[in-house]
């Protein structure tokens, strides 16, 4: 589809209304108090207006997160839409914050708002980028870890859209496994 003259005059509605969240680590406050709803949008044009007015992910300080979730879903395991779900996790090396993080996060956002996963887009809850000194992380969260056809389709499309080399392996982890783990290792339920 090309942008016609009429296209330039009107806003383009998204399939979903999305909420942008910001997390800033402050050890004196609870995790929930550190999580802030920034704004919501439901058109392509409003997405770009917001995107161009906020800090790029790579400019945030370590410990911060951005999250983009469908309206009505909170970016936490406890939400009923996330509870039985999991995430496709892309772990980045430290040096990728400068070279790759912003491109990969934008691509993730475009996958979400453009409904890149076709009929399986229904399963998508949102996405999170974590800025961490030991290595940043980007993940797409889906609502049902046992839904293998949906999870694997989303993983394949996502990996392709990120332009990751076939040699790079991304893993899907159930939130229930992440929440109950006793060390920093969570087993992958699926890999692509």
């Amino acid at each position: 589809r090309k942008l016609s003259f009429v296209d330039r005059l009107e806003k383009h509605p998204l399939e979903n209304r999305w909420a942008l969240w910001f997390f800033k680590n402050d050890r004196n406050r609870t995790w929930r108090d550190n999580l802030h709803l920034v704004t919501e949008f439901d058109t392509v044009e409003d997405f770009w207006a917001i995107y161009s007015h906020i800090q790029m992910a790579s400019k945030l300080t370590s410990g911060c997160d951005y999250a983009l979730f469908k309206d009505g879903i909170e970016p936490m395991w406890e939400d009923s839409r996330n509870k039985h779900g999991g995430r496709w996790l892309v772990s980045l090396a430290k040096q990728q914050r400068q070279s790759n993080l912003d491109r990969l996060w934008l691509e993730t956002l475009l996958c979400l708002i453009g409904e890149a996963f076709e009929e399986y887009s229904e399963e998508v809850c949102g996405a999170v980028v974590n800025l961490r000194t030991k290595g940043d992380k980007i993940a797409i969260w889906t609502s049902e870890a046992e839904n293998q056809p949906a999870v694997t389709f989303i993983g394949r499309v996502y990996k392709e859209r990120l332009g990751l080399s076939p040699k790079v392996v991304i893993g899907y982890q159930a939130h229930a496994d992440t929440a109950t783990k006793s060390n920093s290792f969570t087993k992958n339920k699926f890999v692509i």
Binding site: R1, E15, I113, E115
Partner: peptide, 18 residues
């Protein structure tokens, strides 16, 4: 119903549109 799907190219064009 039908899903509103936008590919990457269309979304990027909207970014640059005045």
């Amino acid at each position: 119903g039908t899903r509103i799907i936008y590919d990457r190219k269309f979304l990027m064009e909207c970014r640059n549109s005045p």
